[in-house]
């Protein structure tokens, strides 16, 4: 980058954030405007410090849900950064991303998408294809496409994000399970039930392995127990009083990353139900209840 935020601006930023957090926008906004005026007088309009100050003020407007005003400031900041830092700079990508977020908040997904795409291109160029910030950008892009019903593209972006998370942070990173969940929900939207089911099973198997080690004949994840229960239901009916299988150890495992695992349990349960596998569905739903 070669450019760092000056201490004076950092102090002012912290002060503005404090006022904004207290809802004292009537103090925060004039403070920002005064600082902007001072900066422009001493450094001129086209200076990175002015762009940073515009970003601070945009944040205050965003917090007040004044998205149009915020977007106007970010467009100004974007032009300054492109001029002073160059077109392919991470600060330019970040500004483009935040502009896309503001458009997204106003439901303008179509306008937001190209901004998000440009941010992605810059990050890939500067950071390489396998970087967590690239995955973050892919997540935002996927969400914008999802809101436009472009599921083929959503699928591509989430797949790439999963690949990045798995390659640079390992399979246990919570973002892997979260992104796989999002990808599975995109598969469901397209009626790709088999693909979604496979992903849900992957998530639950990983959660199991993390807690109890490799899966084998004795050591099985919850969905295998649920399917066995489904398969043996006729035998149990003959015996009349079959004991309900204990999933005690699984309740513990689910606590590891409960929001994602809980969602996955419910989603796979719903898929089982759709296939008429009611016993398997009940087993997962019971487990989800306990981990809530």
């Amino acid at each position: 980058g070669g450019y760092e935020i000056p201490a004076r601006l950092q102090t002012l930023h912290n002060l503005v954030i404090q006022y904004a957090a207290q809802g004292r926008y009537e103090v925060a906004v004039p403070l920002c405007k005064q600082a902007l005026e001072d900066l422009e007088k001493t450094s001129g309009h086209d200076h990175p410090d002015v762009a940073t100050m515009l970003n601070i003020l945009a944040l205050v407007y965003r917090d007040q849900n004044k998205y149009k005003e915020a977007a106007h400031l970010l467009n100004d900041a974007l032009a300054i950064r492109e001029k002073t830092l160059g077109k392919d700079h991470c600060a330019v990508a970040a500004t483009l991303n935040n502009l896309a977020v503001l458009y997204g908040k106003r439901g303008k997904y179509k306008e937001a998408e190209p901004l998000c795409k440009r941010a992605l291109e810059i990050r890939e160029k500067v950071l390489g294809k396998y970087h967590p910030d690239v995955a973050k950008q892919l997540n935002n892009l996927a969400l914008l496409c999802q809101n436009q019903g472009k599921y083929e593209e959503v699928q591509d972006y989430y797949r790439r994000a999963v690949e990045i998370y798995e390659s640079c942070v390992g399979p246990d990173y919570p973002s892997v399970a979260k992104t796989k969940n999002n990808l599975a929900s995109c598969y469901l939207k397209q009626g790709k039930y088999k693909e979604a089911e496979a992903l849900y099973k992957e998530i639950l198997t990983r959660a199991h392995e993390r807690e109890f080690g490799s899966v084998n004949g004795e050591n099985k994840p919850i969905w295998m127990h649920a399917e066995e229960r489904e398969e043996s239901k006729d035998q149990r009916k003959e015996k009349d009083s079959a004991p309900y299988r204990e999933y005690g150890s699984w309740y513990k495992a689910c606590k590891v990353d409960s929001p994602t695992v809980n969602t996955t349990l419910k989603s796979l349960g719903a898929l089982y139900r759709r296939q008429g596998k009611l016993e398997a569905a009940e087993a997962l739903e019971a487990c989800a209840q306990k981990t809530r």
């Binding site: 980058g1 935020i5 970003n55 950064r81 600060a91 991303n97 935040n98 997204g104 969400l143």
Partner: peptide, 20 residues
């Protein structure tokens, strides 16, 4: 539930715009 999951997904703001 799936809808709930989708609703929870939010576009992520990049805070690094203030640190450059």
């Amino acid at each position: 539930d799936q809808q709930n999951v989708n609703r929870q997904q939010q576009l992520e703001w990049d805070d690094s715009t203030l640190t450059y």
